[in-house]
């Protein structure tokens, strides 16, 4: 994988907002004292009259966005995912989701890979919260290009959309021309022995795992489940039928995350052996992003171990 391009997902968000700003005069961006780290400063420089600094008051910011949507604006607000998903959860639930308001949420700094800031700033609960809110939709893009496309797609969707992105530069696994269809998973690599369903930075780890597995004769299908809600159930059912074993991979708590969501579909439609690569019900801690991903068991090696397990279970059943 040497020579691979690394880029910031949040830069994809920031640049997409500028593009949206040019295309649609109703696009408005809000931030809670984190303009540069959420990269909405790009929009602020271009469209100062459509940029609202809310200060350190995330509940207020989320509901200001709700009010903007009442008068026809398409508000995008940005803060760290920890604050967007937890601090403002009540505002998301009542004002925004219960009213189905056209508010877009950019949750930066998702996952353990946030690094040295430690547990408080490593958001790992957003999938559980967003998936449980009626009317909410959620996207976790895998890289820079996908974040750019996901941000554009969010503007086309009516109602609340949560987009999660990370802090670190991550390997680019798609390109400008890779199709992005909201609600439709991307198959990044085909294979029939096992399916690895991943989101966010874990798509890259899943692809690395699949390459290694191929060397030992195991062909893994790698599914980029960029849309967490609505979930592409057809793709999951097809993977269960055709591969007969599934491992999910996410930078999120094990309870209520991508793995839970996939298991719900698999258990109902076509039960097959499954295992989960996720954060095992614990808070994060300070460290370098790479060492944390390793320490928390979120590496391609961890995926490979779980793949071994589900393939054994699968063959044990035959």
């Amino acid at each position: 994988m040497s020579g691979r391009e690394y880029r910031l997902t949040r830069e994809g968000w920031g640049r997409a907002l500028v593009k949206l700003g040019h295309e649609n005069p109703n696009v408005v961006v809000l931030v809670g004292d984190l303009a540069s780290s959420t990269m909405v400063d790009l929009f602020a420089r271009e469209f100062p009259e459509r940029f609202i600094e809310c200060g350190i008051a995330e509940q207020n910011m989320a509901t200001i966005a709700a009010g903007l949507s009442l008068v026809g604006k398409i508000p995008f607000f940005a803060t760290y995912g920890a604050f967007a998903s937890c601090r403002a959860a009540d505002q998301l639930r009542v004002a925004i989701c219960y009213s189905n308001l056209n508010v877009k949420i950019g949750g930066a700094h998702g996952g353990i890979s946030v690094g040295p800031d430690g547990a408080t700033h490593q958001a790992m609960e957003e999938i559980a919260i967003m998936r449980s809110l009626p009317n909410m939709k959620m996207i976790i893009p895998a890289d820079y290009y996908e974040t750019f496309k996901a941000t554009g797609a969010a503007a086309e969707i009516s109602g609340p959309v949560y987009i999660r992105f990370g802090r670190e530069k991550v390997p680019v696994v798609t390109d400008e021309n890779t199709p992005f269809i909201f609600g439709k998973a991307n198959i990044m690599r085909d294979g029939g022995d096992v399916a690895i369903i991943a989101c966010g930075v874990m798509v890259h780890e899943a692809l690395a795992a699949a390459e290694d597995l191929a060397r030992s004769g195991i062909e893994a299908r790698v599914i980029n489940m960029h849309t967490l809600k609505p979930l592409d159930e057809d793709c999951i059912i097809k993977a269960a039928r055709e591969c007969g074993a599934i491992v999910t991979a996410e930078e999120h708590q094990i309870y209520g995350g991508l793995g839970s969501a996939v298991a719900q579909v698999v258990a109902r439609e076509y039960p097959v052996p499954m295992d989960y690569v996720a954060v095992m019900d614990r808070f994060g801690e300070s460290g370098k992003p790479d060492e944390l991903l390793t320490a928390f068991g979120l590496r391609s090696g961890d995926i490979i171990r779980k793949v071994g397990g589900v393939i054994n279970m699968k063959s044990g059943r035959d």
Binding site: E49, N60, T63, A66, G67, L70, V71, P75, D90, Q91
Partner: peptide, 23 residues
Amino acid sequence: VSSGSLGQGLSVAVGAALGSRMD
């Protein structure tokens, strides 16, 4: 706008007022 959890409305009003002034 839906309400019932107290303390949200004034923020909604701020957003609607800001958006109206932009236009």
